[in-house]
C-alpha cells in the first residue's frame, strides 16, 4: 500500500516529456523558410542549374516524407516508385485527355491513391520481407503494364512527352514544388498530432495487440497507403512536368523506391524533420557525385543505408542532444 501512495504522491502531471510543444516545430519552420528564400539568393550565373537541383531536392523531400508516413504504420514499402510513376503517367495522360493542369495534378494523385488501396488490401496481412517483396514485385508489374500498353495510349517503352509545368518558368516551378512540400509537411504533422499517430504507431509496434485494443487495421493501413501514395504521386507530377519527357524505365526505376527509404532512415524514421533533412543532405551528395561520374551515383544510397543500419539506427535526428524521449516532430 505504501509504495503505491508514495507513487501517487509524486508530481503526477509534470509536463510529459513526450508531449509535443510548439517549439518543436521551429526547426521545420526554419527549414521551410530557408527553402522559400532560396530562389532569392544571389545565385550567379549558375542560377538555373542550382534552382533545378533545389527543385529536385524538394521533390525528394516529398517522396521521403510520404514514404515515412506509410512506414509509420509498419508498412516498409518498395512500391513508392510505382506511385511516383503512376502520378507522372496519370498527369501526362490526363493532360493528353484535355484536363487543365491544375485539375490533372490532384486527379492524378487521387487515382494513384486509389490504386494504392488495391495494393494495400492485397498486402494487408503481410509483414516484413513478404510485404517488401510483394511491393517490389508490384512496382515491376505496373511498369510492365505501362510498357506493354499500346504505344498510342502510354507511349510504350519509348515514353511520353509532357507539356512543361507552368510554361517552363523555373522560379514558378520551384514555388509550386515548395508549396507541395509544405503541404506534405502539414499532412505529416497532422498525422503526428492526431489519433492517426496512435493508430499507426500501435500497428507498427504490435499489430495483434493493437487489434485486441480495438485498432482497425484495415482502415488505418489503407489510409496510410492512400495518404502516402497520393503524396508520392504529386512528386511524380512535379517530375513529369519538370523533365517534360517520361519513360517507364526511369520513372518506375527501383531508385525511386530506394531513395525515399534510405533518406528517411538516414534522416530519422517516423519524424517530419528527419526525412526532409535527409533529402537535402543526400540529394546534394548525389548531385556532387553525379557531376564526376556518369553512372552509379546511387552508390551513395547503398552506402548510407548500410552505414545507417550499422551505426546510426536513429538517423540524423538521433544525433541531436540525447533526447531519448524528445517530443520530436
Amino acid at each position: 500500500m505504501s509504495a503505491r501512495q508514495a507513487e501517487a504522491g509524486a508530481p503526477v502531471r509534470a509536463a510529459p516529456r513526450r508531449e509535443i510543444t510548439p517549439g518543436a516545430a521551429l526547426p521545420l519552420l526554419g527549414f521551410l523558410l530557408l527553402a522559400a528564400l532560396f530562389p532569392f539568393l544571389p545565385l550567379g550565373s549558375r542560377a538555373e542549374f542550382l534552382l533545378q537541383i533545389a527543385f529536385f531536392t524538394l521533390v525528394a523531400g516529398i517522396m521521403a516524407l510520404s514514404w515515412d508516413i506509410l512506414a509509420r504504420s509498419g508498412q516498409v514499402s518498395l512500391a513508392h516508385a510505382a506511385f511516383y510513376g503512376l502520378g507522372a503517367y496519370g498527369y501526362a495522360l490526363l493532360l493528353k485527355a484535355g484536363l487543365p493542369w491544375l485539375l490533372a495534378m490532384p486527379v492524378a494523385a487521387l487515382l494513384a491513391g486509389g490504386v494504392s488501396l488495391i495494393l494495400g488490401a492485397v498486402t494487408m496481412r503481410l509483414s516484413g520481407m513478404y510485404f517488401a517483396i510483394a511491393t517490389l514485385a508490384f512496382t515491376e508489374v505496373v511498369r510492365t503494364i505501362i510498357q506493354n500498353l499500346p504505344e498510342s495510349v502510354a507511349g510504350g517503352a519509348t515514353g511520353l512527352l509532357v507539356p512543361a509545368l507552368l510554361g517552363g518558368n523555373s522560379r514558378a516551378q520551384y514555388a509550386l514544388a515548395w508549396g507541395l512540400l509544405a503541404f506534405t509537411v502539414l499532412v505529416s504533422l497532422a498525422v503526428r498530432l492526431t489519433r492517426l499517430h496512435f493508430a499507426f504507431a500501435a500497428i507498427r509496434q504490435g499489430e495483434e495487440t493493437a487489434r485486441v485494443l480495438g485498432v482497425s487495421i484495415v482502415r488505418f493501413k489503407l489510409l496510410a497507403f492512400f495518404i502516402s501514395s497520393s503524396l508520392a504521386a504529386l512528386a511524380g507530377v512535379l517530375y513529369a512536368g519538370k523533365t517534360f519527357f517520361i519513360n517507364p524505365l526511369e520513372t518506375f526505376s527501383l531508385a525511386n523506391s530506394i531513395a525515399p527509404l534510405t533518406t528517411s532512415i538516414f534522416g530519422g524514421l517516423y519524424t517530419t524533420l528527419g526525412p526532409v533533412l535527409g533529402a537535402t543532405v543526400l540529394r546534394v551528395a548525389e548531385e556532387l557525385l553525379h557531376n564526376s561520374v556518369k553512372d552509379g551515383y546511387l552508390v551513395v544510397y547503398g552506402l548510407v543505408l548500410m552505414l545507417s543500419i550499422l551505426w546510426l539506427p536513429r538517423g540524423l535526428m538521433g544525433l541531436r542532444r540525447n533526447r531519448k524521449h524528445g517530443g520530436d516532430l
Partner: peptide
C-alpha cells in the same frame, strides 16, 4: 508498445477501444 510512453500505451486503448 515499446516505443511509446506508458501514458501513450494506455491512450491507444482509450482512443480505439
Amino acid at each position: 508498445f515499446p516505443e511509446m510512453t506508458v501514458h501513450e500505451n494506455v491512450t491507444v486503448g482509450a482512443l480505439f477501444g
